[in-house]
Design a protein around this nucleic acid. Structure first.
Lengths: 242, 242
DNA sequence: AACTGGTATTGACGGATCGTCGTTTTTTGA
DNA sequence: TCAAAAAACGACGATCCGTCAATACCAGTT
């Protein structure tokens, strides 16, 4: 028993090592620079051993994604704990997304890759389930904030609207803008400040849901300042350069 | 001179053939099934000849994208010509996007792929420019509709808002929703009808810009019916199944 | 300590694909 | 008709994925 547990612990540690190395390679050399041989070499294990942990390259990449996704989730959790109105907290989520993107510029690209059909066909269902669970938990944070808004009375949904509609809208807005952002020369295409536009559009959408307090009754700059200062003091510098 | 032009015409025709074959392969066998060898074989040319037209695989794929992008643009042009208020015409653009996605399920995935940094590094700058020009023209259609709205007096932008903000918002909303849609099991994650939510969120966003006539003063079902009937009678069946 | 059965690890190998380049074929211009 | 230039060809080297037979390691037994 003890033997077995030690062995299993070793295996788990090694799996973490592989994932961490994968993430590092991804960051340093890009997706094309991430090879199974390279991971084997960098970890001083053989390729066969790597393949004992992951069915294939895609599987490993999804495992890397699970890690980054849980990183994002913890950012979300901190944002959700912000002391303010539910709408303030949702704004904090938005900032969390921005921070995450600033800290993991590669993650977004890989996330898009992983949405490929051919990709998901290759990865292990079990690994995909872990990813889905992590995504689910992340979304649940947003649903929770929305529910709080309703409970407090700041937000009232018309019949045809669902709680998830708000999250889907915001999520799309952010994901979509980021996708456009690093896929096009936005400047030349007529989008002078896409990030700022994105934030404003998010506010407009929430205003459209009549989620109080409306952005017109809020000092958004001060709000952003408070959130950055209270929730993300360490991370704010990652955001400033842009 | 005549010789040269004939030769050039042949070359252009062949290039079109390669691109068309690429698109077909992409549709039939997916991204993984698209190989340079396969294109050479299918067109009965040699691989070397294919490489005389395209610097590499990525370059060819971008060329395929240029084609699909221009297909989308013509859908947009038809939508923009709809006889109705500017806001009606913008709604028609939304339907055009839905139709395009229904008809080219692969295009979206490839579009995401092409946003990869490593991808764009490999493609020829010249091909990328053609893609950008096509995207630019597509966006310009949306900008034009927005300007019409302002000219007519249906829309008035607050100082901090730009014309491009509306297009960026809608574009993000649609792109983002689609990305989420084919990357996650939306049903299980708590999004019962993401497409319908997407349409509603688009309406909400435009309402937030106070673009008259507001969705609350519009029979959206009738509007959709009119657009489908008048602008996209042929394509509507592509949309019904979903 | 030696042995044995089973498990974990290894890296050489087959297969697929990209992109090149020397050779062959075709075209051009005289 | 012919020689030089241009185009087309496809075999080849290089890279990477995933496999698998051979090897090394380990636990428990004699």
């Amino acid at each position: 028993m003890v033997q077995l547990t030690r062995k299993q612990r070793e295996i788990q540690e090694r799996e973490q090592l592989f994932v961490a190395t994968g993430r590092r390679l991804l960051l340093e050399r890009g997706y094309a620079g991430l090879t199974m041989d390279r991971i084997a070499e960098a970890t001083e294990y053989s390729k066969g051993t790597v393949y004992q942990h992951f069915a294939n390259k895609e599987d490993l990449l999804v495992a890397v994604l699970v890690g980054t996704c849980s990183t994002r989730r913890s950012l979300f959790e901190r944002a959700a704990a912000f002391r303010g109105t539910p709408r303030d907290r949702m704004a904090a989520i938005g900032i969390a997304v921005e921070i995450f993107r600033a800290q993991h510029p590669d993650a977004d690209a890989v996330e898009h890759l992983s949405r490929e059909q051919s990709f998901r066909e290759k990865a292990t269902p079990e690994t995909l389930l872990r990813l889905q669970a992590s995504e689910q938990a992340t979304l649940e944070i947003c649903f929770g904030i929305t529910r709080d808004g309703i409970a407090i009375g700041d937000l009232e949904l018309a019949e045809e609207a669902r709680i998830s509609d708000i999250t889907l809208g915001l999520w799309s807005l952010y994901q979509g803008t980021f996708a456009i952002l690093d896929g096009m020369p936005t400047d030349e295409l007529g989008f002078p400040d896409p990030l700022e536009t994105m934030r404003q559009n998010a506010q407009r959408l929430l205003d459209a849901f009549d989620w109080k307090p409306l952005s017109t009754d809020t000092d958004l700059d001060a709000q952003r300042e408070r959130i950055l200062g209270e929730v993300f003091p360490e991370e704010r510098e990652a955001l400033e350069p842009s």
